[in-house]
Amino acid sequence: MISLIAALAVDRVIGMENAMPWNLPADLAWFKRNTLNKPVIMGRHTWESIGRPLPGRKNIILSSQPGTDDRVTWVKSVDEAIAACGDVPEIMVIGGGRVYEQFLPKAQKLYLTHIDAEVEGDTHFPDYEPDDWESVFSEFHDADAQNSHSYCFEILERR
């Protein structure tokens, strides 16, 4: 099963200049909980913004210009990325925008964090048809001392 995991502000903004323009430790914990011990696929820009392999996960970098870091697996196509994951129950696609666009048609599940923030962004989550998805989990949280904005975790499964 292919799943996408993303944090989205208003207007589906997911990033600005290779960074997330908010401070939500709870979302980072949600991300870790849902990706640990699963292969993660990301684009080169996302890889560069993280700066290191995510521990406890097979890191697969999709790029037309593969790098030389041998701590991760470099691939040039969506099919190659899927094959590099091996026989696993769930593959997690973690961004960025172009990689989400490439995998959305193949995805069966979306793990979304909806952030109540209007922020400037240069990267967006692809538009998706809500009628194609069923919400199977939703959990709202107010902003607090650690988390700069209110947010809602949601899991959607393709109908």
Rank of each mutant, 00 (worst) to 15 (best):
R159I: 13
M42V: 00
L62F: 11
K38V: 10
A145G: 10
D127P: 12
R52I: 11
A6F: 14
P105R: 11
V88S: 12
I82C: 07
K58P: 07
V119L: 08
W74E: 10
H114L: 15
R71F: 07
E101P: 00
L36Y: 08
Y151R: 11
E154K: 15
D131Y: 12
N59A: 12
D87W: 09
I61K: 00
Q65F: 08
P25W: 05
R159K: 10
D87E: 08
R52K: 08
A84T: 10
N34H: 10
Q102P: 06
F153W: 03
V40Y: 01
R52E: 06
D11Y: 01
P53F: 12
T123Y: 01
G97P: 00
S3N: 13
G121S: 01
F125H: 02
G67C: 12
E48T: 07
P105K: 09
A7T: 03
Q146T: 07
A81K: 03
G56H: 07
C85E: 05
P105H: 06
T73F: 04
R33F: 11
A143K: 09
I115W: 03
E157D: 09
I41F: 07
M92C: 15
I61Q: 01
D87R: 08
G67R: 03
V10Y: 03
E101K: 09
D122S: 02
D11A: 12
Y151M: 06
I82H: 06
S64R: 11
E154R: 15
S150A: 07
G86C: 08
N147A: 13
Q65W: 12
Y111I: 12
E101F: 10
H124V: 13
I91N: 07
A7G: 00
E90M: 03
V13T: 11
L36R: 11
S138G: 04
G97M: 03
N59V: 13
I94P: 01
S63M: 08
V13H: 01
M42N: 01
W133I: 03
T68I: 08
K58S: 08
F137Q: 10
I82D: 04
W47F: 13
F125P: 02
Y151K: 11
S135E: 12
W74P: 04
W47D: 03
E134Y: 09
V99R: 03
T68D: 13
F140Q: 12
D131K: 04
F31R: 00
S150N: 03
